[in-house]
Computed example of a mutant assay.
Amino acid sequence: MNVIYWTDLIGTGVFAISGTLAALHKKKDHDILTLFIFAFVTATGGGTLRDVLIDAYPVAWISDANYLIVIIAGVVIAVACRRWWLGILQRPLLVFDTLGIGIFTILGLEKALMAGVNTWAAVLLGIVSALFGGVIRDTLANEVPLVFERQLYATPCLTGAILYVVGLSLQLDPTVNFLLAAGVITGFRLLAVKKGWSLPPIRG
Rank of each mutant, 00 (worst) to 15 (best):
L131P: 02
L179M: 10
Y153I: 11
L107A: 02
N177E: 05
G116Y: 13
L125E: 08
W120C: 07
L158Y: 10
L146M: 15
P145T: 00
E110Q: 03
R150P: 13
L107H: 03
V117T: 12
A154I: 06
V165W: 00
W120T: 11
I136F: 10
R137L: 08
V176I: 03
V165T: 03
L131Q: 03
D138Q: 13
G133H: 09
A122D: 07
G133W: 08
N118Y: 15
A181Q: 01
A115W: 05
L152F: 10
F178N: 04
Y164D: 01
Y153C: 09
A181P: 00
N177I: 04
I185T: 04
A141F: 07
I162R: 08
T119H: 07
L158M: 11
V128E: 01
R150L: 14
I127A: 15
G183P: 00
R137F: 11
G134Y: 00
L131H: 01
M114A: 13
G183L: 01
L146A: 14
C157G: 09
F178S: 00
V184C: 02
T119Q: 11
R137V: 07
T175Y: 04
S169A: 11
R150K: 13
L172P: 09
L113R: 02
M114W: 12
Q171N: 05
P174S: 07
E149G: 04
V123H: 06
A122V: 15
Q151E: 12
L180I: 05
